[in-house]
Simulated assay, not measured.
Amino acid sequence: MTNIKKVSELAGVSTATVSRTLKSPELVTEHTREKVMKAVQQAGYRPNWLATSVKTGRSNSIVVLVPNLVNPFFMRIIEGIEQGAQEKGYSVLLGDTQGKASREHEYASMVLTNRADGLIQLDHSFPFSANDAALAEKVPMVSVCERIEGERRYPFIELDNYAAGRALTHHLISYGHSRFGIIAGQRTSQIHHDRLAGIKSVLKEEGIDFADNMLVGGSYRIETGIEGIQQLFDRDVPVPPTAVFCFNDDIAVGALYELKRRGLRVPQDVSITGFDNVKVSAYMDPPLTTVDQPAYEMGRRAVDVLAQLINRQPLQRTREILPFQLLERGSTGPVKI
C-alpha cells in the first residue's frame, strides 16, 4: 500500500502536513489542501480510517436525511455533500426518509449509537424520536434549505427565500400581471412561509389584492402541479389567474403539462414560474423561468459547518444565506390583453 511519505514527496510538503490535511483540512490553506489531495489521488493512497476511528472513538461517517431521493434538486445538494465529505475524510450514509417520521428516527439514531459522527437534515422536521430527544441535544446537526423545527436553533444553510419571492413577483408584475395563483409545496415549512411572504409583500406594495383561494397545493410533486392547475382553473372565479407561481420546478412541470392539455398557451395565455433550476427546466417547452439555488455549494458548506461542530470548533454564525439568481426564460411573458 502506498504510504503517507510518498504523498508528502508528490505534494512537496511534510508528512505532518499531509496528516493534518487529511484529518483537519480546515487547518491548512486551500492551496495546500489542493496539492495534498491531488497527490493522494496520484499516489493511490488510502488512509486507514478504521484505525483512526478506533483511536478517536469516531466513525468518520455522516448521515444525510433526504425526504425524496429522486428529487433532482436534492441530488445536486448531495453531490456537494459528497465532495465536501470526501475532502474531509468522511463517508456519507444516505437515508431516504420518504417524509416518514419512523424512517427519520431510525437513520438519526445512528449518530446516537456512534455509527455516525454527525447529521445533515434536508427537511424541516426534528429527526429524533421523543425518547431520543434528550440524548440528541448535543448531536452535531446542520440543516440545508430548511430550518429544523423546535426550540433549539441548529445551524442552517439556506437561500433568502423572501427576497426570491419578491424578485419573482416584481418580474411578473413588470409584464402587467395582476391576477396570480400559487401552487405551494409543504405548507408547514419555513420555505413556504418565506416565499409566500415575499410574494404578498410586493402585491401589497403594488396595491394588488390576493385571494386566499388562489393558494393551492401542499407537496413538491409533479402531480401537485397538475392538480393545482385543475383547482385554479375549475373554480367558480370571475377571472382565472394570468400567472402562476410554482414553489418548485417539479410542480411547474405538472402545471405546464396540464395547461397545455387544456389548450392554454404558455406564456401567451398563462405565465409560469418555478423554483430551484433543476437541469430539465432549461429544456422544457417553453424553457422555465425559475430561481437558481446554488445547491452544490449549499451541500459543501453544510459539510464544512458540520465538521466544525464535530470537532467542537466555535461557529462564527449559525445562519448562512447563499445568493440566488432569477433566470428569466420563455415561460413568462406579457399579460394577454
Rank of each mutant, 00 (worst) to 15 (best):
D292A: 10
D285T: 07
R300D: 02
V278D: 04
T273Q: 05
N277H: 12
A282W: 01
K260Q: 15
S271K: 13
A307G: 03
D285G: 05
P294E: 02
Y283R: 05
T273F: 11
V266R: 09
D304G: 00
D276L: 12
D269Y: 07
Q293G: 00
M298K: 10
L309T: 06
N277W: 03
A295N: 04
Q268S: 10
P286W: 11
V291Q: 00
V266H: 03
K260S: 13
L306Q: 08
M298A: 05
R301V: 02
V278T: 11
R265C: 05
V303I: 14
S271V: 11
Q293K: 11
V266N: 05
P286S: 11
R300P: 01
L306I: 04
R265T: 06
K279M: 10
Q293F: 01
G299P: 02
E258K: 15
P286I: 13
Q268P: 02
V278M: 14
R300K: 15
D304I: 07
M298S: 03
D304R: 03
R261V: 06
M284N: 04
A307K: 07
S271N: 11
R300H: 04
S271E: 07
G299V: 10
N277V: 15
L259N: 03
D269N: 10
V291G: 00
E258D: 09
P294H: 05
L306H: 06
N277G: 08
A307M: 04
P267D: 09
D292L: 13
G299C: 05
E297H: 07
D269H: 06
A282L: 07
L264Q: 06
P267V: 02
M298W: 09
M284Y: 04
M284C: 05
Y257V: 01
T273K: 09
R300A: 10
T273W: 10
N277K: 12
D285K: 14
Q308W: 00
P287F: 05
A302L: 12
R300I: 14
V305W: 01
E297P: 00
Q268V: 14
E297I: 05
Y257W: 12
L264I: 09
Q268M: 07
R262M: 13
R265Y: 03
V278C: 10
Q268G: 02
M284F: 10
S271R: 13
N277I: 14
G274F: 13
